[in-house]
Design a protein around this nucleic acid. Structure first.
Lengths: 143, 143
DNA sequence: CAATCTAGTTTTAATTTAAAACCAGATGAA
DNA sequence: TTCATCTGGTTTTAAATTAAAACTAGATTG
């Protein structure tokens, strides 16, 4: 898996496409920012978490900053680049909600804080706002 | 990584969150359906491709069907569940296009076949169509 | 019918992940 | 201020996964 893939999807998966990185990012969106909290939350090996955090920081998805509780520790926060993954996490969540739970099986769902209303289903759209079917899309090479 | 994760994101990543599965799905969206074509395209080991295809079929993301060229071989096609990953792949592609290429660096992009127009940027929205910022969303547990 | 192609499987080696022990510095309690 | 504990790691070793290559059976081509 060399660097500098020409396909944006491949390059994205190079950065965050392993088993743990997107779960770390999901937790970060939920406000989990401390090493220990991430480790307990995700139940993952500390050395692997350490490695992934380093890679996510190197990739510019996370950054370290002084802990907000005033202690001498640090916390991991999403950068602007990391915040850009919000649509990815939401799309993944919606696919999971739709496709991976038995009918009637309980699951969490994403709502707007202010209203408590569920978030709208994400769908690729054309420039003029029509829903875009997979078969109506194509990749234009090397723009 | 046990089965039956309560979080839809975790469950989704259990199904397609390894280094190869989403690349296979991306190729499937691009019409690549034959074992040999996938292997050559992705440059991955045959045994791993074989394993991933089996898992994706078991997960209901892909299904096998007779090859469309009339030969006795089979091909792997997206199921309805697999087609549901379109927003995930597009979101990932847009993040890659936005964040992972140097300014001016050439990259492919996704356009509408009919018009050649680029696909609109995906953004989570509230029920009434407002853009939803990450900080304005929350997870409601066990709906 | 022989050569080649397709879609795998098997075997073995290399890499990655996991678990557990370990450690240094920060914190908190007496 | 000192001792015990907490935090955020690293190191070591074992287990699991991935990769590369060789191999195979059935399909196709000439």
């Amino acid at each position: 898996m060399t660097q500098h893939q020409p396909c944006p999807v491949a390059r994205a998966l190079d950065a965050i496409g392993d088993r743990w990185s997107l779960l770390i990012v999901r937790d970060a969106f939920d406000g989990v920012q401390r090493f220990g909290d991430l480790q307990r939350n995700l139940g993952m090996a500390r050395n692997i978490l350490s490695d992934r955090l380093r890679k996510l920081v190197d990739a510019g998805v996370l950054q370290t900053q002084p802990a907000s509780d005033g202690s001498a520790y640090q916390e991991y926060a999403l950068t602007a680049k990391g915040l850009g993954l919000f649509p990815v996490v939401v799309a993944l969540r919606q696919w999971g909600e739709d496709q991976l739970f038995a009918p009637g099986e309980a699951h969490s769902s994403l709502v707007e804080k202010a209203s408590g209303q569920p978030v709208a289903r994400m769908q690729p759209q054309t420039a003029d706002g029509q829903v875009l079917a997979p078969s109506a899309a194509m990749v234009r090479k090397l723009g």
